[in-house]
Design a protein around this nucleic acid. Sequence first.
DNA 1: AGAAGGACTGGAACTGGTTCCACACCCTAA
DNA 2: TTAGGGTGTGGAACCAGTTCCAGTCCTTCT
Lengths: 347, 347
Amino acid sequence: MEAVPTKTTIREVARAAGVGIGTISRVLNSSSQVSRKTRARVLDAIRRLGFRPNAQARRMLKRRAEMVCFLLSNRDFLHPFHARILQGVESYASGLKQHVLFAALHYSPRTPPDRIDLPPVLQERGLIDGVILAGTIYPNLLRRIESIRMPFVAFSNNVVGMDDEQQFDQVGFDDFNGTLQATRYLIAKGHRQIVFAGDVSYPWLHRRFEGYRQGMRENKLNPVLITARNPLSFGDFGQRSVGRILSRRSRPTAVVAGNDEIAFGLWRSLCRRGVKVPDQISLVGFDDREEAVLMDPPLSTVRVDKEEIGETCMKMLLERLHHPQMAFSQRVLPTEFVTRGTVRHLQ
Amino acid sequence: MEAVPTKTTIREVARAAGVGIGTISRVLNSSSQVSRKTRARVLDAIRRLGFRPNAQARRMLKRRAEMVCFLLSNRDFLHPFHARILQGVESYASGLKQHVLFAALHYSPRTPPDRIDLPPVLQERGLIDGVILAGTIYPNLLRRIESIRMPFVAFSNNVVGMDDEQQFDQVGFDDFNGTLQATRYLIAKGHRQIVFAGDVSYPWLHRRFEGYRQGMRENKLNPVLITARNPLSFGDFGQRSVGRILSRRSRPTAVVAGNDEIAFGLWRSLCRRGVKVPDQISLVGFDDREEAVLMDPPLSTVRVDKEEIGETCMKMLLERLHHPQMAFSQRVLPTEFVTRGTVRHLQ
DNA sequence: AGAAGGACTGGAACTGGTTCCACACCCTAA
DNA sequence: TTAGGGTGTGGAACCAGTTCCAGTCCTTCT
């Protein structure tokens, strides 16, 4: 930590150690053979001069930025779900001496691909090796990223409007089996009148609804979908749906909410009407957001390992970078129903 | 978007446009004079060849990475507060074509500075121009960052254990005036028995307590501090404090919570005991986290503009980079009490 | 007409690493 | 004794930009 000259180059180190520049490079990359004596001399010179190699120069030659971009689309803030994915990406990346650039983007699903104004990171060449797409992803963005030949991996649960099985690397979690498990659990606890609350125009909520439906069907029960028109938000949707749920002829004993925000909205509205959860009605959510534990009683919900999603995205992107010709892969991570306090055992 | 040759250099563009390489560079940097005709020819060649300049090469020459690191310390997850600061940093940065690298770090306040294992980003030279420190900051980390001569700006509210007015660039918000305003508001609404709940061994909670105390004193009221031993978390602290608050001889009519998490814990425990907020007791928080609006009734609290903190950090860091010799500056951003539903007008 | 000045342009030199070829040296085998 | 192979080393060439100096050309002034 003594007087560190602002810049030292390998040439100066070479002079100080009385060796050639190639040798310095070899020592730095701890690769090919350098004799024990020479290596020691070089390391000593490096220490004396406080030399730190210039990362930019190496990157230029290596044609690797050792950096990926985490691109969050169409979210006005980095909410806990995506924040944890980012955290997963970063912690895995830093172990491999890879860096993670954070960028945000707002675009409309109707903008033509080549008119999407990508963040500066993606406009320059060589700055990053690849992109991890998070947030809501529409086909035009994917096409745009493809057009600049940027390798990418998408967090697939929020992909919207992809006609058929479009081919790209993706990582997601299992919406279908999450609600299937939750529904089976409710049925095992004696529930028969179970409704699903959620706007199924969102593909991920639709998949969750399908899981619920499967659970109902395999038990010869009648699936019921509750939707509201023009909700302001998921929470608002939950609050508005309560009336329609309670007023059904045969009153449901349990609700499968499309996500935790909806569950929260339902719960709040139920509280206000004096309907006790879980005594009078049971409730399960999906996502296991922080709020799930804040509710009283804490919400039984479907857990998703967000860090693992991030880690898997990063892992897959690195594979893609090393094998550009590799076939596309799609990982679906398992989800797990967690029992807390909002489901009552009937009978 | 036709066939884009993987790599094109300015020399090829120069050849295609029939000009010299210097001219290409001048056009790219839109700086010095290039005749209208030449510029058009060059731009056309760039478009035809699908040329995108190599960012690494420019960075190397310019000796600027145009990149800063957002370093989050000692948080096991990027919670909404810091996530929004990051978002503020990024949105301001991207307007200036600066990039933001996300990195996390865990360290103990007792590790000697030179033993702190910095993330890879900070170990290489030239990768980033400076650092924005967020999360909990102890003196040893600051010393470490100084020792590698890395310009930095710290988000100062969570700085812990800085003996005297140590000199460095910092941005924070006004803890003192936040609770002062909140306390004055409560007093204006007729409250006299007001207590403060929070563990004041955290410097920021201590400052908030001082603001509360000031508010009480200037109205000749007696400040009361409620603390609990060994809480697991702020939420837990809130829950545990309720007993001590309610059992006071002259029962308080209002509680100033050290932060929203404590307020949430208090509220929950009050609900359980059947004590109505705000009918039987008023409650105010601090931070304006998302949860504040989820509570029922929504929490009156002190708002902090997190995006603005991020933006100011970035702005200050850029100034520091342009004027390395400039005197250190400390910005304190204002806070604002927001009225929602948890304060009752007495009398 | 000639000089002076400004606008524009070409390209060599440069940045700070990596790569690779040539070469020195030593040891062993023929 | 000489050829041959392996190990270790020096440094030119390179990457893809920027910088800057010198030179051309065209005005404008004297």
